[in-house]
């Protein structure tokens, strides 16, 4: 069995670590501390099933990152995380189906696990 790959982008290292610690049993977790490194991983890795990104990050915010990433890999499911209530920008991204869902921080990892639809692949 091969675990499905998930990329998580957040500028807070502690969030990355906790995410990895809590979900690495079920998924292969890739993490990036910025949209730029995130894009690099997207380019160099195949079979990423889902991408979860924080909204507020320096240099490139979550929506910008997801837009750029979706141009490279349109088939991945994208999700956004934000400490703020839903904003016009996020609503737009939801309406245009750029992202599948929006999670508000603090996020319940179980809820994310439930939402992400990445079947384990047998090999």
């Amino acid at each position: 069995m091969i675990k499905p790959k998930i990329l998580y982008v957040d500028d807070e290292p502690l969030n990355l670590m906790l995410f990895r610690a809590n979900l690495s049993k079920k998924y292969e977790i890739l993490t990036a501390e910025s949209g730029i490194t995130g894009l690099e991983i997207i380019r160099n890795t195949c079979d990423i099933c889902a991408v979860i990104s924080d909204m507020r990050m320096p240099y490139m915010d979550g929506i910008e990152f997801i837009k750029a990433s979706a141009r490279i890999k349109p088939n991945i499911s994208y999700y956004i995380l934000s400490g703020f209530d839903i904003s016009d920008e996020i609503q737009e991204a939801l309406d245009s189906m750029l992202i599948r869902k929006y999670f508000r921080k603090p996020f319940n990892l179980k809820e994310i696990d439930k939402e992400i639809d990445c079947p384990e692949q047998s090999n």
Binding site: A21, F84, K105, P106
Partner: peptide, 24 residues
């Protein structure tokens, strides 16, 4: 308050993540 809310959410996230890890 929007700023405060956002700033509180991150550490809250650590606590929740930590708790989830502990429970697991």
């Amino acid at each position: 308050t929007a700023g405060i809310a956002h700033e509180i959410n991150n550490p809250l996230n650590y606590i929740l993540g930590g708790l989830t890890g502990l429970q697991q």
